[in-house]
Design a protein around this nucleic acid. Structure first.
Length: 418
RNA sequence: GGAGGGGUGGCUGAGCGGUCAAAAGCAACGGACUGUAAAUCCGUCGGGUUUCCCUACGCAGGUUCGAAUCCUGCCCCCUCCA
């Protein structure tokens, strides 16, 4: 492929967002010639998005920053069906109420990354339930269904893999790709949208939409996918002990989010800086070249930049200060999870370690605390404690004590009201 | 509809009357080494009022001193035949 000339394509290519493209040259030319409207679809199957979605989110952000118009398409309609490409199990049906809750949560995430409004490059959020819920079956089959051959549909990976593994594929799910293809056409008609982005698993769906647009309206639509992002171990990124790394503050604190990025493996730092921050490429190149202990500086920059995007500069700064106070100075930072204990609880014998650690969220069960203690991993104010340790009122200063489970997990206990 | 195979801990997957809270691997957690990295090594890995008790091998019963293991019924999945 020749070097792209449009700023957007240069940016996306240099940062590693581009995997496959239906017509790279054509898209590049169009991007130079005019303002392009592009979209990515998100299924509102959860009330937040996680770092796995970040590659898509960042692409929409770049689209907007380079003067084009992003559409966030929420699959309120398709969420009722479930994308068969995922796993073997059929998708759970979501209630309408749940879908509304999820849409609101997702909208909150996008508010951080895009600017919405009525202007020409302002992002808009659209729900495909708007047109899918009203579809009439026979007209849809006649107008849209005629353009799909089952023969072809059977060759798409999402379907093929199901069939090959002899996993059931319901007719309901079989329709997903048609509806997604139809979404693209509908967005093209309503908003002049000509570009669909997505993960590499969406290639088939994207191509379908593009072709449907050509057959139905003689439109030239473009599609482009991004690579599946794994970490240097080859594991899908964004999985931690507690599950997904959420972008909503109420699912994952800004401090934990910051820590997630701070703990990036050395080998991933450069790639992640390019994908998940807005930092200039030459700056990233400099950070990427750091070696040995100095890569920690790059990780801190990564954590700050990524946290600023998702939670704002204040939260990022607070997270960094807490990390600094906790790890470098061995103290306790303000953003650590905090357990408050009432005077009543602290009276007399006080609170035992087992309860203390469980309540502080550092262990899931008392047994786990026992295990921690047996392995010397449970510390109060930096000192290893035994199973018989009890926290009493006079042992708890007003500014609290630091509880630690292992070297990385910390919390603070303090008297209530202090 | 008929015949056969199977449902085990977060996942993969052994066990097929007692010594089974259930091998092994992965994941996870703690420790050592480091740089809040990776790799490596050691340890842990259902819960509790912890020499004992509770819950657990698809669900519900039964046989037995004793069942993840045997029997009956039900649910679900797979294969072959129709």
């Amino acid at each position: 492929m020749t070097q792209p000339r449009s700023p957007l394509m240069q940016e996306l290519t240099a940062r590693g967002f581009v995997f496959q493209s239906t017509d790279p040259e054509g898209l590049d030319q169009k991007l130079q010639a005019e303002r392009v409207t592009g979209y990515i679809g998100f299924d509102p199957t959860g009330d937040s998005l996680h770092v796995g979605h970040l590659v898509s989110i960042m692409q929409l952000r770049w689209l907007q920053r380079h003067g084009h118009k992003p559409i966030v398409l929420l699959g309120g309609g398709t969420a009722k069906i479930g994308d068969p490409s995922g796993k073997d199990e059929q998708r759970q049906f979501l209630s309408d109420e749940q879908i509304e809750i999820n849409k609101a949560g997702i909208r909150r995430v996008f508010d951080k990354f895009l600017s919405f409004g009525d202007g020409p490059t302002d992002a808009i959020l659209v729900d495909n339930a708007e047109w899918l819920d009203e579809l009439r079956y026979i007209p849809f089959l006649r107008d849209i269904g005629r353009h799909f051959t089952v023969n072809r549909m059977l060759t798409f990976d999402s379907v093929k893999s199901r069939l090959e593994r002899e996993q059931p594929l319901s007719f309901l799910e079989f329709n997903y790709m048609i509806l997604q293809a139809y979404d693209f056409v509908e967005l093209a008609r309503r908003y002049g949208c000509v570009l669909q982005l997505g993960g590499s698993d969406q290639w088939g769906n994207i191509v379908n939409g593009m072709e449907l647009g050509r057959r139905l309206d003689d439109r030239h639509l473009f599609g482009q996918t991004s690579p599946l992002i794994t970490n240097a171990d080859g594991a899908k990124m964004g999985k931690t002990a507690k599950g997904a790394v959420w972008l909503n503050e109420d699912r994952l604190s800004a401090y934990d989010y910051w820590q997630f990025w701070r703990n990036t493996q050395d080998a991933d730092v450069g790639r992640f800086l390019r994908l998940f921050t807005d930092l200039p490429l030459d700056e990233i190149a400099r950070l990427e070249a750091l070696e040995g202990q100095e890569v920690n500086d790059a990780k801190r920059v990564l954590a700050n930049a990524a946290t600023t995007l998702a939670h704002g500069p204040d939260a990022a700064r607070a997270a960094e200060e807490t990390a600094q106070a906790t790890f470098a100075a061995g103290g306790a930072g303000a953003a650590l999870p905090t357990l408050e204990l009432t005077p009543e609880r602290l009276a007399g014998d006080g609170v035992g370690v087992l309860d203390l650690f469980v309540e502080a969220g550092l262990a899931d069960s008392k047994k786990e605390v026992r295990r921690l203690i047996a392995q010397n991993g449970a510390r109060v104010d930096g000192q290893p404690v035994g199973e018989d340790y009890r926290l009493t009122a006079d042992a708890l200063p007003g500014d609290g004590l630091k509880l630690s489970a292992g070297k990385k997990r910390h919390a603070v206990v303090r008297p209530a009201g202090a």
